[in-house]
């Protein structure tokens, strides 16, 4: 497949099967890239077991003060929108965990007393599973925002088929994840919880103008709130994946469904072809 297509796999609710779908789709594609954007809890590498050839520390700048230069003028602390700075007895106090690394304080300081110091935010690793390039990043424990890691990850999109495994929810990490996506595959489960969160992530992708379709996962033949939502809201249903205890066991053991099952190999090859087709039309 020579064509360039970036597919983001999302869900709103956690645990609907995003990673299971993403890793299996990536593994059936030829010469594709898999990017795990769930930097808080990355799991794709547990299934794909890539041979890592490069690791890179991603850093973020935080201010430090040179007390000899700082005269306590308060220009920086008055201007800081996040209130990450305070001045007491002409001495500057810095609250790095509140700082958003916007860079304004260095710019404003008339004494040049603020220095930007790079701090580690996490590690980005690159590896191969056969011809599949596997990229993932792990946010350092205690760091609030993985957005810079996601930015670093998606800067590696190299063309061809790229499968992005998204974080759960519909917040800032998800915006960042889908910024460069051409198509969003929403994985939903049949429950009312699943339906509520599908609606949220569907609103988000619509707001961002991204074409999307839903994969109904863990269907049982009974009532399916997510299916009803999709039908009522003009969201295309691209495929259905019935609940399968064997698949649950395979996945919980960290194995790929396509490895032990011709059925699933065909299923995911077919799903990928359908996504490419649907994305082309959109």
């Amino acid at each position: 497949m020579a064509e360039n297509l970036t597919i983001a796999v999302l869900s709103g609710k956690g645990g609907t099967g995003k990673t299971m779908v993403s890793v299996n789709l990536a593994a059936v594609a030829t010469g594709a890239t898999y990017i795990d954007c769930d930097v808080e809890e990355p799991n794709g590498h547990l299934f794909l077991k890539p041979k890592v050839f490069e690791e890179e520390t991603i850093t973020i700048g935080k201010p430090e003060v040179d007390q000899r230069r700082c005269d306590g003028c308060k220009i920086c602390s008055d201007a800081c929108a996040f209130k990450a700075l305070a001045v007491v007895n002409k001495k500057l106090l810095i609250f790095p965990e509140i700082c958003h690394s916007c860079g304004l304080c260095y710019h404003l300081c008339p004494q040049g007393a603020l220095i930007e110091v790079e701090q580690s935010l996490g590690v980005l690793s690159k590896g191969y599973r056969d011809d599949l390039l596997v990229l993932s990043a792990e946010l350092k424990i205690g760091e609030p925002s993985g957005v810079p890691l996601i930015k670093a990850l998606i800067n590696n999109i190299k063309g061809g088929i790229t499968i992005i495994d998204g974080p759960p929810g519909s917040g800032c990490l998800v915006h960042e994840t889908i910024a460069r996506a051409d198509f969003c595959l929403l994985v939903a489960e049949p429950t009312r919880f699943g339906e509520q969160n599908l609606a949220l992530v569907h609103q988000l992708v619509s707001l961002m103008g991204k074409p999307a379709a839903v994969l109904l996962n863990k269907t049982t033949g009974g009532a399916n709130a997510s299916e009803e939502y999709a039908k009522a809201n003009g969201l295309s249903i691209i495929a259905t994946l019935p609940w399968d205890g064997q698949l649950a066991r395979t996945t919980s053991s960290g194995d790929l469904a396509i490895d032990g099952s011709e059925h699933y190999r065909q299923y995911f090859s077919h799903l990928l072809a359908q996504i490419v087709e649907e994305a082309r039309r959109a």
Binding site: F82, K83, A86, F95, I98
Partner: peptide, 18 residues
């Protein structure tokens, strides 16, 4: 003036009092 702050209200209020 910090009570409506959308974050860092404690630091801002403390600065006000200091």
């Amino acid at each position: 003036t910090a009570k409506e702050a959308s974050g860092g209200a404690g630091i801002e209020a403390a600065q006000l009092l200091v």
